[in-house]
Amino acid sequence: MSNRDVFRKQDPGAHPDFFRAEAAGLAWLADAGMPVPRVREVGAGHIVLDRITESPSGGDVAGRFGSCLARMHDAGAAGFGAAPDGYDGQLFIGRRPMSRTVHASWGEFYAVERVLPFVRIAVEAGSVTGRQLPDIERACDLIGGGALDDPEPPARLHGDLWNGNVLWSAHEVVLIDPAAHGGHRETDLAMLALFGCPHLDDILAGYEAAHPLRAGWRDRVPLHQLHPLAVHAAGYGAGYGRALHRAALATLELGGSR
């Protein structure tokens, strides 16, 4: 094995669970059939992965990825908010700690553990204004109260599925840098749409062929973008705060509360 075959990430100052969480998430997704880099080594301050050779790909690869993503989601999780099976440490999204508290209902989990904690950080950072905050909190009250819950079981999520974590090779898509946990499958798809992804229509077609989405899923995209937008508002400025506010208003419309 040469250095050209592997990719090493290291940060001696990282939280001791940071790279462990990444390794556990990758293993959990792989157990569900998703192509991910093999973990060669992991420690408190580093992780060594197989290097992925990227190359242009087309709609056929995208369609297979969509089907694989649906099967990964269907592999499930122990609950809404659950960490990867067998992992006992802290979860992260990017560098930020993320709750692993499990809830019986999706709406309560999503509002309490995935949106509001990052909204509070965004308020402190000045990215969410006092005018925007009440609407965002009302949307979270609506969600947390169960008004937008459905019968979907907890899905096995990548959890940070933006385009930068989707690597295209000649024959398959490989996922990297998960924030893996149990959640709603539409949240992964909403994040793909939020930041743009090549061949997204083909990905969605492959997904629908494997496991059709519930009617009205396109209307629910802003609801499922609240989490990634709150995370980005916490760290990347007022533009994301404004986008978060717009998504909150769209969520209130879903519940007939605007």
Rank of each mutant, 00 (worst) to 15 (best):
G196D: 08
G58Q: 08
R185E: 05
D85V: 15
M72E: 03
E137H: 13
R100L: 13
S127N: 15
A27T: 01
E172I: 00
V173E: 02
H184M: 10
Y87Q: 15
H46R: 14
M98W: 05
L223V: 11
D202Q: 08
I176R: 07
A30Q: 12
F65C: 00
G183F: 03
S105P: 00
L229A: 02
A238T: 14
V128E: 03
M191A: 00
A248S: 14
A233N: 05
F109V: 11
L204C: 11
W28Y: 05
A77H: 06
P35S: 07
P154H: 14
T187G: 06
G59R: 02
S127M: 07
A21K: 04
P37R: 09
S57Q: 08
H184W: 07
A179E: 09
H232Y: 05
A248L: 06
V102R: 02
L69Y: 01
S257I: 06
L133G: 08
G63W: 01
G45L: 01
D160R: 04
R242E: 12
G89E: 05
D88K: 13
H227C: 14
P212Y: 10
V231H: 02
L192P: 00
R40W: 09
P222Q: 15
G130E: 10
H103A: 14
D149Q: 11
D11I: 03
A111S: 15
L194V: 05
A21D: 04
D149G: 11
V115R: 10
N163E: 12
S55L: 00
R8L: 07
Q132D: 10
G216E: 09
G256R: 04
G89S: 06
G59N: 08
R214N: 09
A14C: 04
F18V: 02
I93N: 09
G206W: 03
H158N: 03
M98C: 15
P151W: 04
S2K: 10
T187H: 07
R100E: 13
S127R: 07
A233V: 03
A205E: 04
I47N: 00
V115C: 11
F92E: 13
V6R: 12
F195C: 00
G130F: 00
P178A: 09
V174R: 02
P12W: 03
R185Q: 06
D50E: 08
G130M: 02
P134G: 15
A250F: 02
G33M: 01
R156V: 04
A210P: 01
A247H: 07
D160F: 02
